[in-house]
């Protein structure tokens, strides 16, 4: 095949793909799909401690995961299904939105920030957590806040809000930082631990989570003024109000009934796998407010 011909055929194949009309009818029907297939596909993370991660037996556990299972129970009861098979699908920061959109995953509760750009592509449930973006550093590094990072190497995880904030800060304040974008939180921490970066910027709860995994948790501290407040929500497909209503109701019930707070105590104030470490992160005022009045608002 001649190169020009080849290019033309690739191009036309792509365009043909674009021309397929969106199957709008299937959208409003996640519930129908659950009923017909008798199964639901849940998206989970692999190393978002303590929200959604694998324990040492490769079982998915965590705060968000437990809430998600509560939602599944509620769905099962609401749809009067004898059996609702749960299929688990690991997702990453980079592919989670596409997988929800294209129907691979029906519901994703992990550590996904609800923001306006993402709302154009997917819908968010009632928020399940509120975090601030801060820094983890070695105790003796001398880094106390973001201003101390000028001219230094800083690591963050690719595809996160922190990455965006730190790059913007670097441009706006001309701080000449070298920002390393690692592919997941585990690799970010490895980059910090091996001395490639002096600090790791991420959601505070995840930083505490990485600390719990570290070889010597006592070597690390979380410092700095929070650069943003973010609400985590579960992602579901857009334009499916029927499904969203049930998910929201189940989450709201867990929050107002005090169940969510119990789950919080379990994951943030008591020893958790894999190392039996306690994150010791007291319930924040923002989260208390959310539990009292559940809502699906983004902070930005």
């Amino acid at each position: 095949m001649k190169p020009a011909l080849f290019a033309a055929s690739v191009l036309s194949a792509l365009l043909a793909g674009l021309a397929v009309p969106p199957a709008a009818a299937q959208e409003a029907a996640t519930l129908k799909k659950l009923k017909e297939s008798g199964s639901i596909t849940l998206g989970h993370r692999e190393s978002s401690i303590p929200f959604s991660y694998y324990d040492d037996r490769q079982q998915v556990i965590g705060y968000s995961h437990e809430l998600m299972l509560k939602v599944v129970d509620a769905l099962k009861a609401e749809l009067k299904l004898a059996k609702l098979e749960v299929r688990l699908m690991p997702v990453t920061s980079a592919n989670r939105i596409s997988l929800v959109q294209n129907g691979t995953v029906d519901l994703e509760c992990g550590s996904t920030t609800n923001n306006l750009e993402r709302q154009r592509q997917v819908a968010f449930s009632t928020s399940i957590f509120v975090i601030g973006t801060r820094l983890m550093t070695r105790k003796d590094s001398g880094i106390r806040d973001f201003a101390d990072l000028a001219g230094k190497n800083v690591v963050t995880t690719a595809g996160t809000t922190s990455e965006r904030l730190i790059r913007k800060m670097n441009e706006d304040r001309q701080m000449k930082m070298n920002v390393i974008s690692a592919k997941d939180h585990g690799e970010s921490f490895l980059t910090l631990e091996t001395g490639r970066a002096v600090a790791f910027m991420m959601d505070d709860a995840l930083l505490f989570g990485e600390m719990a995994k570290a070889r010597k948790p006592g070597d690390w501290v979380v410092v700095g003024t929070p650069q943003s407040k973010e609400a985590y929500g579960c992602m579901l497909r857009k334009d499916d109000p029927g499904f969203k209503k049930l998910v929201d109701a189940a989450l709201a019930k867990a929050m107002t009934s005090g169940e969510a707070e119990k789950i919080y105590q379990k994951w943030f104030m008591s020893p958790i796998p894999p190392k039996g470490l306690n994150l010791n992160m007291p319930l924040s005022d923002d989260l208390k407010t959310l539990f009292k009045a559940p809502n699906d608002k983004a902070f930005d």
Partner: peptide, 13 residues
């Protein structure tokens, strides 16, 4: 990687 970043920033995969 730039493609992935674009997805992260714009949510237009």
């Amino acid at each position: 990687r730039q493609a992935q970043q674009l997805v992260d920033y714009t949510a237009q995969p």
